[in-house]
Amino acid sequence: MNSVLDVEKFSVGYRQARIIQSLSLSGFSRGQLIAVVGPNGAGKSTLLKGLAGLEKTSGSVTLAGEELTQLSFRERASRVAYLPQSLPQPTSLTAYESVLSLCRATAIPLAELEKRIEAVFNELEITHLALRPLQELSGGQRQMVGLAQLLVREPELLLLDEPTSALDLRWQIQVLAATRRLLERKGSLALVALHDLNLALRFADQMLVLAKGELRALGAPDTVMTSKICRETYGVEGRVENCSRGYPIMIVDGLTEMSAI
């Protein structure tokens, strides 16, 4: 299988303080959602920022056969979209304006941009929020607008940094379900940093486990999140089992003894 994204000997950070060290990743298909998981400080956000070109990096990143590190930042930004951990600011800009203004910086013609915004707002079911100021929207609604800001650009690679961290359960499901739908329709690839392992197990096609800036495991969620990985990366005794409806869920039995980590 040809991987749509290949990362080789990828390091992020300055020479003296590399947070991600010589990481190599492959085996990603179009339309897949890859959950990037790991404990605090594992390097999840750093990896995503590095792939987006927002941090100093070395190594190779190939997207659909093209080396991203050789592109100008603007060219790279037209193919790779990054959603920061922070929600869009609660300003008096309307949801529509926030998307339009961010995309006016790209080369997308206005008429095309208007069509895309319409389609994405419909897809995310946030049309009724379009002309409301961001400061009047809830956290979940603002995150949907943040997602719209990205999706309008129709990127090939989406990098979502903990998109569910500030949201309640309903919005967590809504954001990830909408992301999944759009990935399948557009054939893009998404790397999504997540803290909630149950969400990762439920929505991801593959899980990428990071700890201390190193790759610990990559593959199908139910095979990757073994008791051993759980113990070694999180310091938690846990296991993945299927619930009565057949969904894989994480069961935590307790904390690992410190000496065993």
Binding site: L54, Y82, S86
Partner: peptide, 19 residues
């Protein structure tokens, strides 16, 4: 003007677009 409006939408959001 557009870049400043984009900045109000969020600094990292604007940066990630190449502004």
């Amino acid at each position: 003007l557009w870049a400043m409006t984009a900045l109000r939408a969020g600094e990292l959001q604007a940066r990630s677009l190449g502004i």
